Simulated scan of single mutants.
Amino acid sequence: MKARVKWVEGKTFLGESGSGHAVVMDGAPEAGGRNLGVRPMEMLLLGLGGCSAFDVVLILERSREPVTDCWVELEAERAEADPKVFTRIHMHYVVTGRGLASAKVERAIALSAEKYCSASLMLGKSAEITHDFELRDAAAST
């Protein structure tokens, strides 16, 4: 895997992935940025959410669970002093489907956290990561 990050101006950077996608990153105004893009540490949090949600949906689909929607809401705390690593991250999954089995959703989240999500396993070295979830019935929301 390869990536490239290029300084644009001020505190703005353009990140380009090896797969050909790009994202703008910028610093907060108090750090000299102009708020033109996602903060680099926010990118880490987004990566964690994306990695885990991908796993959860894939595991549920392979288990033949009728999942129709999934998202993860993340809240993180960082250390006060440099390096300001994440110290706590809470992940709240919202999974929608028709008659989803709660135990299978719980298992999919656990498998992601403990075995498959590389981002979770790496960030778990410095942060306490907790999870919870809620199920929503797709039939009720139509």
Rank of each mutant, 00 (worst) to 15 (best):
C70I: 07
R62L: 05
A139Y: 08
L14P: 00
L123P: 00
M1T: 09
E106C: 10
C51G: 08
V72Q: 00
V94F: 01
V24P: 01
M91H: 05
G15K: 01
G97R: 01
G20F: 04
A127S: 15
L123W: 02
V72K: 01
G10E: 05
G10F: 06
L58K: 14
G10L: 07
S126I: 13
S141F: 05
S118K: 05
D26K: 02
F133Q: 07
K2G: 04
T142Q: 14
T130V: 01
L121C: 02
S52H: 11
S17G: 06
E16I: 12
T96I: 11
S17C: 01
D137R: 07
A28D: 14
A138S: 11
W7N: 10
G32T: 03
A139N: 10
G99D: 12
V72I: 11
M91S: 09
G32M: 03
T12A: 09
M122T: 10
E114N: 12
A140C: 10
A31R: 13
A127G: 15
G33S: 03
K104W: 06
F13Y: 10
R78K: 15
D55E: 05
M122Q: 06
C70L: 12
I129F: 02
P66D: 14
G15N: 01
R78A: 09
M43A: 11
V5I: 15
R78V: 07
C70Y: 02
K125E: 06
S102P: 05
E73K: 15
T87I: 14
K2D: 07
R4P: 00
I89A: 00
D55K: 08
S112A: 13
I89Y: 03
E61V: 13
D132I: 09
A79G: 09
F54V: 15
S120W: 06
A101G: 07
L100F: 05
G97H: 04
K125H: 09
V56L: 04
S126A: 15
R62E: 05
A140R: 14
R4K: 15
E9V: 03
W7I: 08
S112C: 07
V23M: 12
T96C: 11
A113V: 08
A31N: 13
G27F: 05
A113Y: 04
A110W: 13
G15A: 14
G97N: 04
A119S: 14
D26W: 00
